[in-house]
Design a protein around this nucleic acid. Structure first.
Lengths: 400, 400
DNA sequence: AGACTCCCCGGAAACGTTTACAAGTCCGGA
DNA sequence: TCCGGACTTGTAAACGTTTCCGGGGAGTCT
């Protein structure tokens, strides 16, 4: 009864040949049994037994080569430390899983080489499709995407003529929502901490900020604008610099990481939020709810965008002949304690308005609307189909 | 000059056959040219030209089948929203990238089915190796791991007889460091917010907490212990409940997410941190530095564990015959404002001691040492090789 | 009883690469 | 002139799986 090796793979692991030989059947029969299609009871028993004895595990690569699909979908994001991607990823994961596939995430660090490399390597059949959310879009990206053998959906702004599925938001309009809110609350000297201007979201938010001020007849004061990267430390340092040279009564930050950094700087300086300075972030991530006081934040619908991107991808995998599609998710503003003037608090710190216990943090009622509109009544959350909130086609935010 | 299809793949995309036919050479020559080995100048030119004309992109799956490797490594974590995994992932990524491979991340949600599924699917040759950090370890996990055709390294505590590479920390000793610190600062009524007791880190921290109190002769008061999950909201709610029924003067939290949630509850209740309540988290993630006041936290060396796990994995990929290895990373305590009594502050809020601007947030000097030692002078950061800080082999924390 | 259907099985051909091997060409040197 | 080496090329065999197809046996209906 010595174990005789029957056509194992190169490294000695059993293959379907091994199982078939041991069961005394052909590889075709073995494969059928292992896939649960057909086979006489006796054959099934023998194959199952043989497979168990040798510890057979099918080679997924070989299977994929034959089946022309892997059952895997990839998501490429720039910075996995940014919670906005976490929200997006969860939404994507849910959709992808419901189609019986698995989601893999890859962090590119925002480097162009890394991103195009990824497209070259992963998209060349390792996955059935890919969602990417680059913060810079270059021709290299576009070339790599159109060359890719598998469908790619981009979350974020693309050139209008790019034949690529994408889902975007309008972060210019999002910035306008925040500025409108602050102006309506009587703030006049609004500071702005942005990310790099050579990124898509950075450029859009800069343009949006200037346009929003203009729409209120407020002149732009360059001393109230700081640029760093989209990280916590940058926000903290930028806010420190900004307050060292100017005295804004409100601060808008290009994402929540920056806003939390700025909040740290403000509290360190013993400034009261929102009494001395109203603070508004963007992306409406978990961080906004975790901060104290909780941060107002412009929701760019990251979950909705992720979900929609995943749906687009699945549709395209099912039918590659579909024409390129472009979808919009409208931004909305979520007002929390950091800019709430409705419930000003006398004592040392600011008020919180939605911490009444309960399960996981509830999302506050968002304010939604066009760019130059003043205060509006609260409505339902974003992600209505169509209806971009402002001049359509504006660049989108991190991670769009 | 009409484009004639020359043996394209099933879905119409060009294969090496297409290129070879168009260039008028054999597929062997085409393959060699495309891989940059050999070929006469004329052949090289013709093949390159043909490849460019048809837009040839090699099929990575087919290549992998032949080469018996994919150049991909996977990391499976339970909760990608927990920053401790971000730190770990960055460390792993660096090592993996230096070997010319790419890292893919998969979030399992901590579900056993999802994790074993992943092992079945991914580890069956889709990747060259895998690092996983499950918070529960079941027999199903172990079976799946030993059955896996590709190397698997586990970050976290495993049964001692499991023939699996793993790198762990000693979170019992980590808890002891925190308790020692609080006791040395004169705190006597130490509350504890833990994660689920049926998880490996939850169980270890519970045991560590009770043992640490005992070592100081402090009786365990069950009213000072709360259990939730390892999330922000759970920490906030647990802290609220805990303070509603008891009045601790210090609070230890099983990870930083919980600690930030607890901080939120404390500040909402107008309690001063650290004057009224000293607060200590675990994992020493970015969150600890982003909170205000900054959180003291027990570093479990997540980056060091990640790096080491990646190194182990690469070594095993290179030589699968290696015996199973087990490595330890010693915990250390990083003291920040939330438990710093050295610099008490009179006014409303607490002091911060390392916000002097500068680049990205610097890591504070950690306190390192055995379990029952009182306060020690500050030393260099953790991750020295060897030297577990306490009874070796204790269970490890989230994510270990 | 013959024809027909149904089911099970095995041989062989895919899927798209890389690569071992043999054969061919060209050149220089003996 | 002939031989040996260097180089190039093509044929064919892998890698491990699924699946088409045809053959054969057993059962059923006419």
């Amino acid at each position: 009864m010595g174990r005789k090796r029957l056509q194992p793979s190169a490294d000695g692991r059993p293959t379907v040949h091994t199982v078939a030989a041991r069961a005394g059947v052909s590889i075709a029969s073995a494969s059928r049994v292992l896939n649960g299609i057909g086979g006489s009871p006796e054959t099934v028993r023998r194959v199952r037994e043989a497979a168990a004895e040798v510890g057979y595990v099918p080679n997924a690569i070989a299977r994929s080569l034959q089946a022309q699909r892997t059952g895997l979908v990839a998501l490429a994001v720039a910075d996995i430390g940014n919670p906005v991607y976490v929200a997006m990823m969860r939404a994507i994961e849910a959709v992808v899983a419901s189609s019986g596939r698995q989601l893999l995430v890859h962090a590119t660090g925002g480097e162009i080489d890394s991103e195009t490399d990824l497209l070259r390597r992963l998209a060349n059949r390792y996955v059935d499709g890919m969602i990417m959310s680059p913060i810079r879009i270059t021709d290299r990206h576009l070339d790599a995407i159109v060359l890719s053998p598998v469908p790619v959906v981009v979350v974020g702004q693309l050139p209008d003529d790019a034949p690529v599925d994408n889902v975007r938001t309008d972060s210019r309009a999002g910035v306008a929502l925040a500025v409108d809110h602050l102006v309506a609350a009587g703030r006049q000297r609004i500071g702005f901490v942005n990310g790099p201007l050579d990124t898509v979201p950075g450029a859009a938010r800069d343009a949006g900020f200037r346009a929003a001020l203009a729409s209120h007849g407020i002149p732009v004061d360059e001393r109230l604008i700081e640029v760093g990267d989209f990280q916590y430390a940058a926000g903290r340092d930028a806010a420190t610099r900004l307050f060292a040279r100017a005295e804004p009564d409100a601060l808008l930050c290009a994402n929540d990481l920056i806003a939390v950094g700025a909040l740290h700087a403000l509290l360190t300086d013993r400034r009261r939020v929102p009494e001395d300075v109203a603070l508004v972030g963007m992306d409406d991530t978990e961080l906004a709810q975790m901060a104290f006081p909780q941060l107002s934040s412009v929701s760019l619908g990251s979950a909705a965008r992720g979900r929609r991107a995943a749906e687009l991808l699945l549709e395209r995998i099912a039918d590659p002949a579909l024409p390129p599609r472009r979808e919009h998710v409208a931004p909305s503003l979520v007002v929390r304690a950091s800019s709430a003037v409705d419930h000003p608090v006398r004592g040392g710190s600011a008020a919180v308005d939605d911490l009444t216990g309960g399960g996981s943090a509830a999302v506050d009622a968002p304010v939604r609307g066009g760019s130059a509109a003043p205060r509006r009544p609260r409505t339902a959350p974003a992600s209505r189909p169509g209806t971009p909130a402002a001049p359509a086609g504006g660049p989108v935010g991190v991670p769009s």
